[in-house]
Nucleic acid binder design. Structure first.
Lengths: 341, 341
DNA sequence: ATATAAATTTTACGCGCGTTAATTTTAGGC
DNA sequence: GCCTAAAATTAACGCGCGTAAAATTTATAT
């Protein structure tokens, strides 16, 4: 590795014995130049560590290789995990991913979208916050930039939607709970931050009806994304005022369940499916942490890998020109049986 | 809002009735132009949504406004939280933060650093993975780009180090545990992923010595960053073979403690500080999840806000030319008393 | 009103690379 | 060795903005 600094592509093409346009072509697509030429460049690349100036590169290119990944809340390990998965797929496909989080704030989400706009991304993978108020901004964004919506769907925006089949989630786990004990009541936030919650409640109601059971929904107060705390506080209240009509509680999501488990612990309520337990608690999401609660949480898990694979591939296909009509793909979850229910 | 598209700064300066260099100056620093001029620009900004092309902007500027934030593992809520905090501070200070995670992989960390290099960042906030093998690459990076190291220190690299006082952490919580019950043994990974673990073990040994107690360190096997699973597996083994010489266990970090709590649950070992409990467990870090374990985890918490405030301010000061000699700032943690110990 | 400093305008070049069109070289088949 | 298609070179322009120097205008104090 020589340490003479290469200032630009002009200099680099000189030392590799080629012309600048050829080298430029190489960086755009290594396969587009002759093998012997490619060898020359890659040899020079070994000796000098030159990298094209990305700012100059992206300035004129109609299509950059940038891909934006936007999640509503990165501190939620569920989104962190799926973002990591997507990021890796972008890298493997030769794109340059950039990660953004709205941190639960709709205004920040709009800010992120604007930042993204100025990066001229080839495409964006977006898990929207799902506030109705932002749909207009969102629509404008999707009109300008190839955007694939994942996790939670908003109208028929973007190229396509890929996410989990929330209906199937709730139906499946409700079925399991009904078959193995008392039919569940449903524990949720009155004003959920995530729109998937509505589908889950509805599926719960449908499932209970089809089983011939009376549904009971406990909707607790609380705003924002601190689901565990909301679940804990709401759980305390519900326990104290004996709102749970059955010994089985299906939570709208795992984070709420985690908070409820804490509330149960704090009130000395024993949770589990063994005979001495007072109640059963189940969640939904397959949250990375659900394995480590006490008792470990029975839940129905997103197929993280399949969701991100579908999402990434659909976006890349669209970027590369394979036009397809808008489509919604909803993947099934897998029941994970643990000790809590 | 008119919808005639502004193509570039030339056009924008025209409709705001000013010259391009003045407008350019404004975007570089709004305070650098006369108030009346600023008003004109901002009025035009209301009517037309023009944003300077960031690629063209950054191309020639010696110093961009980009700031890189690099953490070893974004799916760890501890890093996610501190990254969020740092990101906000960058935004507030007028910088453009970009978030990166090494996802626990040293090679990816080097990749991230190279990507960052090509972004010509004004500065970087880096929490290194801490693998000895990477220090050379890391040093080269720090030589070229103003880098502030946080969370875990590597030699005397970069502009400065800001992190928590791991010695104080362990000393303080050891002291608490000794005063309130049996002296603790120390539960850690044999080959920790994070170098802070070594300081914590040493502080534990020192603390026990100064209290006149015999220390006991249980080092469990396991590679990588799946601390909960490592803690759970190692916990099971340690419990079965009765390796814990006391009824009090201080874990090297909260994630390990969370895994150990699960192991205890699974073996029917009651954890807590009440009379019926068999053992006490304490963690270290103040992990966002520690509040919701069962029992809630007693721990000593990073001062998230203070760490990120110090780190961000030190970097901004350096960027703005306030040269200071290398300095290490280690902030104290706060004991959080909960039910586990 | 006048002087002076500060702000703005004008003019012009450069950054590093994308890209295009015309020209020349090269590789591979006959 | 010749022909042809493919690849590389040459030459040149443009992208959108940073920036510098000189000329001009504006604001503020006297």
């Amino acid at each position: 590795m020589s340490d003479t600094k290469i200032r630009n592509m002009e200099e680099f093409s000189a030392i590799s014995g080629l012309s600048r346009p050829t080298v430029s072509k190489y960086f755009h697509d290594p396969e587009s130049v002759r093998a012997s030429t490619r060898a020359k460049i890659e040899e020079a690349l070994e000796r000098y560590d030159y990298r094209p100036n990305i700012f100059a590169m992206n300035q004129n290119r109609k299509l950059t290789k940038n891909v934006g990944i936007v999640v509503p809340l990165l501190s939620d390990p569920y989104f962190a995990e799926i973002a990591r998965n997507l990021e890796q797929r972008c890298l493997d496909a030769g794109y340059r991913p950039t990660l953004f989080s709205a941190h639960g704030d709709p205004e920040l989400e709009v800010e992120v979208l604007n930042t993204l706009r100025s990066m001229k991304p080839a495409g964006v993978l977006l898990a929207p916050l799902g506030r109705a108020s932002q749909t207009r901004e969102l629509k404008k964004f999707c009109d300008d930039i190839p955007t694939l919506i994942f996790d939670s769907s908003v109208d028929e925006l973007g190229l396509a939607f890929v996410g989990s089949d929330n209906m199937q989630f709730t139906t499946h786990i409700s079925d399991y709970l009904c078959r193995t004990g008392e039919p569940p009541c449903f524990f949720e936030m009155k004003t959920p931050a995530n729109p998937n919650a509505h589908r889950r409640r509805q599926s719960y109601l449908n499932a209970m009806e089809s089983f011939g059971h009376t549904p009971q929904v406990i909707s607790i107060a609380g705003e924002g994304w601190s689901f565990e705390e909301i679940g804990r506080t709401g759980g305390h209240e519900a326990l104290k005022s004996k709102q749970f009509g059955t010994n089985t509680i299906l939570c709208s999501n795992d984070r709420l369940a985690i908070g409820l488990l804490t509330a149960c612990y704090e009130q000395g309520v024993v949770v589990g499916r063994h005979p001495e337990a007072a109640i059963r608690i189940a969640g939904q999401d397959g949250h990375p942490h659900s394995r480590y609660t006490c008792p470990p949480l029975t839940t129905i898990s997103h197929d993280y890998d399949a969701v991100s694979k579908h999402a990434a591939e659909a976006l890349f296909a669209a970027i590369e020109g394979h036009v397809e009509p808008w489509k919604s793909t909803r993947l099934e979850g897998k029941l994970i049986l643990r000790d809590s229910a």
